[in-house]
Amino acid sequence: MNIDELKSTWSEDTATETPEISTEQRNKIQLPLENMRKNMRREFWWILGIFVFAFLVCSICRPFKLQLYITVLIASMFIVTVFFFSKFFKLYNEISNPVFKTYDALKDLMIQFNLNKQYYLSYYISFAPFLVCEILIILEFIPWSKPLSELQIAIILISTVTGGLFVLFLAGKFWFHHYYGKHIKYIEGLLNELKA
């Protein structure tokens, strides 16, 4: 095969276009995307408010050792939150300026949604070590009427961490489905219509 035949074969292969998305279908996509953007903004402001409140509470904690531990713990949680919210912010920017003219562009968006779903669940699960630290701080600084035995401390710690992980996972799944999942399913339905 000579170069000219190879070029013509290459041109034929690249000439296949992906299906265009009609204006009506693009308009159908805009509403769930706008709802997702609104939910992302709302969630950002809620999380910011929670951290401001947490730092204010830290400022009145006494003794100093407790205040230091809680401040360091909340600052660490804030750093983890900033990391994950930077990932969510990239998606927010992408869906803020949607240019979905082809099936492939919409398919890429669905891949990003699925990736961000994993980020979202990871965000909630990443709070497990903080939960352990919180329980240790509580066990250390709360005055008990009689000292706890090592077995009691182990049972409290293990049961709280196990229950807390379960609650964090369920909360993450519920929150994601309630605020984002239904909109993603709607867009996925439109994607399936285009495929058919």
Rank of each mutant, 00 (worst) to 15 (best):
100 F>C: 08
143 P>K: 07
75 A>E: 06
89 F>C: 02
72 V>E: 10
70 I>A: 15
119 Y>I: 09
67 Q>Y: 08
72 V>I: 14
125 I>T: 13
92 Y>S: 04
136 L>D: 07
75 A>R: 01
146 K>H: 12
85 F>P: 05
130 F>Q: 08
86 S>Q: 06
138 I>R: 14
106 L>R: 08
54 A>K: 04
120 Y>M: 07
77 M>N: 07
116 N>W: 10
77 M>D: 01
68 L>M: 12
131 L>C: 05
88 F>N: 08
98 P>C: 02
135 I>Q: 12
60 I>H: 03
159 S>Y: 02
112 Q>M: 10
117 K>F: 15
113 F>D: 08
67 Q>F: 11
49 G>E: 01
127 F>S: 03
85 F>K: 10
105 A>N: 11
55 F>W: 04
141 F>R: 04
112 Q>D: 15
95 I>H: 01
156 I>A: 11
55 F>M: 13
114 N>S: 15
66 L>W: 08
110 M>V: 10
77 M>S: 09
61 C>M: 12
51 F>Y: 13
132 V>I: 12
80 V>E: 00
102 T>C: 05
160 T>D: 05
138 I>C: 13
112 Q>N: 15
109 L>F: 02
135 I>L: 11
103 Y>T: 09
137 I>H: 04
73 L>A: 15
147 P>N: 10
138 I>Q: 14
107 K>V: 01
158 I>R: 06
59 S>G: 08
59 S>L: 11
68 L>Y: 10
158 I>K: 09
62 R>T: 11
118 Q>E: 13
147 P>D: 05
131 L>M: 10
89 F>W: 15
145 S>P: 09
145 S>T: 06
132 V>K: 05
62 R>S: 12
103 Y>E: 13
93 N>E: 07
50 I>Y: 05
72 V>S: 11
115 L>N: 10
74 I>C: 10
111 I>G: 10
114 N>M: 13
134 E>W: 12
134 E>Y: 14
145 S>Q: 12
102 T>A: 07
133 C>E: 04
101 K>A: 09
95 I>Y: 05
129 P>Y: 01
148 L>V: 09
160 T>E: 02
65 K>F: 12
74 I>K: 03
81 T>N: 09
86 S>E: 03
104 D>P: 00
88 F>D: 07
126 S>T: 06
126 S>V: 01
61 C>I: 05
129 P>S: 07
159 S>W: 00
137 I>L: 15
72 V>P: 02
81 T>F: 03
